[in-house]
Structure formats: structure tokens, C-alpha cells
Amino acid sequence: MAQILIDKVRKDFGAVRALDEVTLDIADGEFVALLGPSGCGKTTLLRIVAGLETQTAGRIVIGGRDLTEVPTRARGLAMVFQNYAVFPHMTVFENIAFGLRMQKADPTRIDAQVRKAAGLLHIEDYLDRHPGNLSGGQRQRVAVARALAVEPPVLLMDEPLSNLDALLRLEMRAELKTVLEQAGTTTIYVTHDQTEAMGLADRIAVMHGGRIVQIDTPTEVYRHPRTKFVGGFVGSPPMNFLPVEVTGGEARLGGLPVPAPVTSGALLAGVRPEDFAIVAPDQGLAAEVLVVEPLGSHTLVTVRCDGATVRVVTPEIIDWPAGRRIGLKPDAGRVVWMDPQSEQAVGP
């Protein structure tokens, strides 16, 4: 069993607090994505779980065993490094075989495992090459194959698909998901690509400034962000936030009364771009079109509304000039409410 408990972990680099009371409980076989902007502490957390960095405070427990005093090599996990760390003096084959060789696996098993992992990542043609003659994306896939080949109970991946083209990334994403699910691997997957996190993970832990600000299923994170930051970071284009004044338990969004979770005061109404209906100018929030971007499957319309920039996504193909006046009608059931001061969600 390989459930992972990250228990109140703190990490200071001198005066810089990279991680602040991070707690994360991951079930055996679960796939958790760590999602957050650059510099929020994702790599640091992964390195602490791996034992490559020592936490200032807190514990790491895997399968019920406190790992604080356990050296990296005895933790029984595999990792894909953000900068690959593929050994330059070994062939691709030897790189992928490295973990199994360390486990003194027998040669036939090594050969089979290496070919399986290489096949999965479409690098079986490069097994005899040295990493020096591979592209960045190919090298990255060697790093992923090296980690998969040992079939670890715990797999840590630090942006393992960041250097692949969009199509290959999509394909690898699906294959990773299948393989890891079949093997029942407990996975922590670092990314700052929110679609990747949404597509792969059982749960997403959103990090910001060294803290985990929300941990939930992808749908829950998307539908009910706990903070304004999460709403803005998860989802592309990000959630829109409209300042509203609540009176008598109701806010008025473009003439439309919407029930609010407080009786009075100022709030931010968070509305996803696809949760606006475009209506006639006098029937909703008055808005002026700034840019129209046709994106094939849908159209992204950027409008100015009450002095703020609002992004709207609509499935319709439209071709409006800038300056056109339209109305926006939010889906009342999908509005989330934030306190403008604390930027935390209010209400259910």
C-alpha cells in the first residue's frame, strides 16, 4: 500500500519560505495533480517527498512509514525531473534500464520492461542512441520511460510533458492515465497546465505562494473555486469577477436579480466565460465588444463591461466588429461569490 501523507510540511530557504504548512493526504493508487504558477513551490514539495530536500518542519509518511530519516534511495519511488536528468553518458536503453539494474532485475525482465516503456512513449527507435543526439521532447520521454520501467508504487512527475508538441502531449496524457491506472500507481503530477491537471487527475491540489489553497476533484475545483486565485488560475480563459452590491439578500447582475449568500454588502460575482448568454443590449449587463477571436469549436469574445474587461465564450460562430453593443446574461445557478477583501469564497 502506498498512500502518501504530507503532514504540515514547511520549507525555508534562508529567509524565503517556499512551503508553508502544506498538508496533503493521497490515497493508494490515487492520481493527484499539483497545479500552480511558477515559483509556488511545486518542485520543492516533490523534492521533499523524494527526500532530495529536507523539510524545515513536518513529516512525509508513505504507506504508514515515517520517511523523515529514510534516505532517498530507500524510499522506493521513481521520479521524472523537471529538467529530465537523463544520463548523458548512457544510451537511451541503459537510461531506461537504470532503475531495474539497481534492483538487480534479471536481464530478460530488464529487456522486456525497457521495450515496453519505450514503446509506450514512442522512443523505441532511439534505444541505441545517446541523449546528446535527441531533441528536448525525446529526452523528456526517456525520463518518463525511465521512471515507468521500474513500475514504482509511488511516482513523482515534475512537468513530464512540458516539452512535447500539443498533439503528442494529448496522446501521452491518455497513455499515462491508462498505464498508471492499470498499475495502481500512486502519482503526484506537477504541472502548471490546468487542462493537463483537469484531464489526468483524480484530485487537483492548487498551490499558491507555498500553500495549498484548494484540493478537490477537477470538476469541483472548476465549479467551486475556494478563492479568487483558484477561479482565475483554473480554467482558460479565466473566471470573470464582477463587483456587485447586495441588498436584501439579492444582487443585481444586469437587471437580473440573483440570490446572494449574504443579506447586504459588497461581493464579487464569479462567472465562467461560458456561463454568459449573449442577449440584446437592453436585456442584460450592457457590454461593448473589444475583440472577437474565432477558435474553431467556439468563439472567444472580449468585452468591456462597467469599466472591467470580461471574457465570454460562446459556441456560436460570430463575426462582430469592435464597438458593437451587446447584453450579457449570467447563468444564476453557476455564479460563485467571493469576498472582495479576503478574496475567499462565501456561501455554500
Binding site: 534516505p71 519511488l77 525531473f81 529538467n83 536528468a85 537504470f98 539497481m102 525511465r146
Partner: peptide, 25 residues
């Protein structure tokens, strides 16, 4: 880069093996 030694360690190499298989070459 220290990542090479760290990667070796992750995959279970002892300090001596890491020195022999990674650092020395």
C-alpha cells in the same frame, strides 16, 4: 549538474554506485 546524482539516488543507487556509474564517467 546535481540532478544526475539525484536521479541515480532516486532509482536506488548507493553513494558508491553513483560515484562509479555517474560521477566518474
Amino acid at each position: 549538474p546535481k540532478e544526475y546524482r539525484e536521479a541515480a539516488e532516486i532509482f536506488g543507487a548507493s553513494p558508491w554506485t553513483t560515484f562509479r556509474r555517474i560521477t566518474l564517467p
